[in-house]
Design a protein around this nucleic acid. Sequence first.
RNA 1: GCCCCCGUAGCUCAGCUGGAUAGAGCGUCGGACUUCUAAUCCGUUGGUCGCAGGUUCGAAUCCUGCCGGGGGCGCCA
Length: 557
Amino acid sequence: MTPEQLSETIRAALLAGIDDSDFQLSPFDVPEVKVERPRQREHGDWATNVAMQLAKKAGTNPREFATTLVERLAEIDGIESAEVAGPGFINIRLAAGAAGELARTIVRANGAYGRGDSLKDQVVNVEFVSANPTGPIHLGGTRWAAVGDSLARLMEFHDARVIREYYFNDHGSQIDNFAKSLYAVVAGEDAPENGYGGQYIQDIANEVMVEAMEAGDRDPLERPRDEAIEFFRERGVRLMFNEIKDSLKDFGVEFDVYFHEESLHSSGKVERALDELKASGALYESEGAWWLKSTDHGDEKDRVVIKSDGNAAYIAGDIAYIRDKHERGADLCVYLLGADHHGYIARLKAAAAALGYDPASVEVIIGQMVNLVKDGQPVRMSKRAGTVVTMEDLVDAVGVDAARYALSRSSTDQSIDIDLDLLASATNANPVFYVQYAHARSAGVARNAAEYGIAREDGFDAALLTHESEAALLGALGDFPRVIAQAVEFREQHRVARYLEELASAFNQWYDRTRVTPLGDEEVTDLHRTRLWLNDATGMVLRTGLHLLGVSAPERM
RNA sequence: GCCCCCGUAGCUCAGCUGGAUAGAGCGUCGGACUUCUAAUCCGUUGGUCGCAGGUUCGAAUCCUGCCGGGGGCGCCA
């Protein structure tokens, strides 16, 4: 019996009780029954507090209510015992057969166990990373790559159609400064004000020069200054962008759409969106600029959309972009942004509202900062000082799996400290190996079982899974769908990682106390076969969970 | 001044849509491999859940106010 089935069973018992006038309640009072795994294993397999929720409404006290309900539950097939505890909890123990059946259910589902449909038919646009092509992706962007991709995977697991999108800011002054910086380093000039420094500028500039020479282009340095800068802009951005794409690919993140901000302007989409907003009165003119009345939609002040010099402000692109995303079919637009952008939430929602979309169709997930730490001391990342750590640096130091896991296992509300030396040397400090090891172990057990000629299909008797560690492992497996559902609902990928650590622990304990393959001359029995089902079910859930985090599930370690 | 995030064991963090005796990893100390992988398991050590009020049968969890740390409040992008 899965927890969902148990929950339904309890609900049915409540409704039957109401029917028989055991409970003075309306059927409409009966909520979805929450069943939870009790912290204390002795309390049973599952527990519910439904009696405490309903007692008041039914005009009785929780314990009395629970006692009546327990009498009904105890009669049900598959429930071994139900008892009232504490202030009115009901602790339920499943019959071994009913609990153990889950192992077969999971294996038969063949990777689909834990799937849900809460986002069925929803088109979800998830925009993340979106780092400017003025330099490599640093640690912060790396975090969003890990988190964003994992959230996308989770939403897909709940039947959403997800579009992974990268907004490429190739328009505006930062790019101009980037181009000037490239030019300056080749021309032997000082870096421009607000320009970029660092080795990668040198590298990209050199690459542009080499490309130009090989292609037989005219030496950029012999061209007029503006033309040369334009030359570096076009080539430099392309090279930088390819480098970013390569890093992301190595990181296991592939975007469906790389969207160019420039295209919003050159295609006239910005102009069209703004004209429309002017017509609808969402924009007004003041002090020579055009403003969005974002205060109508909860922003603390109105925002300039067209500057008094006639140029579009950054938000103009965002407005056209929100509309473009919706026109491409998105029901929900999710943005992952760093904590330094939290002031942007109201603006984006206001923009959506002004365009006539439901502000709830724009959802901004704010993630806290990633800090670099060395020898226990925070290190300020500075491009000038050359202390910037990039996605590539992180992967080189600890590998993709450890990097993605470390960045995914914390709540995005929590800032993260990354110590490269620590992650690289004391790899045990990173629980990814613990989870992966458990998976490799289950794969090893399966290999050995095959050698012993143990075949799952030859026998399965759920009632044989009676060991204490088996009840615990089955309980953990039963939790998986709920954990996934919550991770999806709250957009919290870290719940998956934490769950996997618990599951791996339950599996290791089980492994330590029981055996799948026979000892010595023992004959292969249904106990061995049934345990193989359980082993394989666990391996499958570990693999599914790791996959949702974008982490590999090795067969051997 | 206003807004967002955080404050839980020595350290790093779960738990927060109210529930039972607040958990895990690392660290300390001590155990377990002639039998499916010891990257494991078992035991031990460890807490005014920042502080003060409030709501509730019940608060780490919800509300208010303070304290401390981080980030943000552009006709920059």
